[in-house]
Every structure is written in C-alpha cells, then in structure tokens.
C-alpha cells in the first residue's frame, strides 16, 4: 500500500514571551492508503495539534512531513490551500457548516475553491451524489440550522468526500452529538473505511477509538505506541 502520510521527527513548539510549550515531540508517523487510524489521549496531549499539522492548518516547528511523497513541511499558504483542497477532507467536531448556505452549497464548497474549476452542473451532480452517499439528498435545499446535529455531521462528511481526497482527517466527530447520532455517524465513517478511504480520526472516546484497526495514543505530545485491532469495528457494526 502506498504511504499517504509520513511524519519524521515532527515537533511543534508554541512560544510566547514568557514560556515555550512543546505541544508535539519527535512524532514519527506513517499512514498508508486505506488505513483507518485513531488518535486518542487525554486533554491537552496534542491530538488536535497533530491533526492540524497533518491537515496543513498549522506548520511544524521542525521535522519532515510528506503527503503522497511530497514534502509539505514548508509550503506557501496558497500551496498548502491547494493540497488541503485536493488531498485532504476535514470533518470537524462542531461541523463548521456555513449557515447562510444551503446543504447543497455547503457540500459544493471545496469544488468552488478548486483550481480545476469544474462547471456548475458537474459540481451539483457530485454534491448530490455525496449527499446520496450520506443519505441526505432529500435535504439538499435546506439550511444547516434546519437539520439535526447528526444530519449536520453527515453533511460535513459529504463535504469532505466531494473532492475525492487522499485522506479524511476527522476531529472528534461525535463530540457534539448524542450517543445515537454519534453511533450513526461512526457507522458511516466505518462504511467509508470499508470502501477503501484512508482515515485519521482524533477521538477521546475509547469505544470509537477501538473501531480503528490502527490506534495511536498520545501523551504530553509524544506517541506512546500504536495497537492494531479489528474487534471494536465488528462490535459497533452489530
């Protein structure tokens, strides 16, 4: 399997005038195509910072970072945006949908910013297909605030899928949902994995973390180790 993400000796230090905080220390990480990786750990351990660096939302203080074999450690903002648009699909805890836009428009957004500039008809077709995939095509004309939390997260998943990214980066996907909706969303994420998507998910919920065949635990900015399992995945499906 091809390596999608490769991190070598990645560090992240936040500096103020008074103190330095090492958010990440010597991160070594490889995610291959089709893998489902969960990252878990206590609050403040650096999960979100790691996900932000993986998603090119922040840059590492040192170390090397490759996406699909391309060094992305030091990119210009526009080049980083281009890679985010093409190669990464984000799913956030708080959904981050634009309330002034319809569901269809929200899902279409990544293609609107694409340098390939697809025509409107094909954007709409792709967006509807993604909504169909998450079971919300009948809600295409609604505004996000007319949907339930679980439905909003499904819209966010559809949005993450529309550009056919190399990897999905998911940050606490069930954090804002009740358990029923959370399970539903996680089932969808599991389905995506079975379809061959590469997924990296941050979660503090052990139940959902166990769904991932590859688990990474973080503590004080360092990776403690990774454990492979398939049991949890099967548990949720039943």
């Amino acid at each position: 399997m091809d390596v999608v993400i490769s991190m070598q000796a990645v560090n992240k230090v936040f500096e103020t005038e008074l103190l330095q905080t090492h958010a990440l220390r010597n991160i070594q990480l490889i995610i291959r195509e089709g893998e489902f990786v969960s990252i878990s750990g206590p609050s403040g351990c650096g999960k979100s910072t790691l996900l932000s660096i993986m998603g090119l939302l922040e840059s590492p203080s040192s170390g090397e970072y490759y996406i699909n074999g391309t060094d992305v450690s030091k990119l210009t903002p526009d080049d980083a945006a281009e890679i985010r648009n093409k190669a990464i699909g984000f799913i956030f805890q708080s959904f981050n949908l634009a309330n002034e836009l319809s569901v269809l428009e929200n899902v279409s957004l990544p293609l609107r910013y694409s340098s390939a500039k697809p025509d409107k008809a094909s954007i709409k077709q792709r967006a509807l297909a993604c909504l169909e995939q998450v079971g919300l095509s009948h809600r295409a004309g609604h505004k996000p605030n007319q949907l339930s939390g679980g439905q909003q997260q499904r819209v966010a998943i559809a949005r993450a899928l529309i550009a056919e990214p190399a990897i999905l980066l998911i940050d606490e996907p069930t954090g804002n949902l009740d358990s029923k909706s959370g399970d539903s969303v996680m089932r969808l994420i599991g389905e995506l994995h079975r379809q061959g998507r590469t997924i990296c998910m941050v979660t503090h919920d052990p139940k959902y973390a166990d769904m991932a065949p590859k688990k990474i635990k973080l503590l004080d900015g360092e990776i403690l180790g990774d454990i492979s399992t398939v049991a949890a995945h099967a548990t949720l499906e039943t």
């Binding site: 998603g55 945006a81 281009e82 648009n85 984000f90 910013y113």
Partner: peptide, 8 residues
C-alpha cells in the same frame, strides 16, 4: 472552515 477545505 473555508480555509481548511482549501480556499486560498
């Protein structure tokens, strides 16, 4: 969010 999904 727009920046995150690739808007320049």
């Amino acid at each position: 969010m727009k920046r995150a999904i690739g808007a320049k």
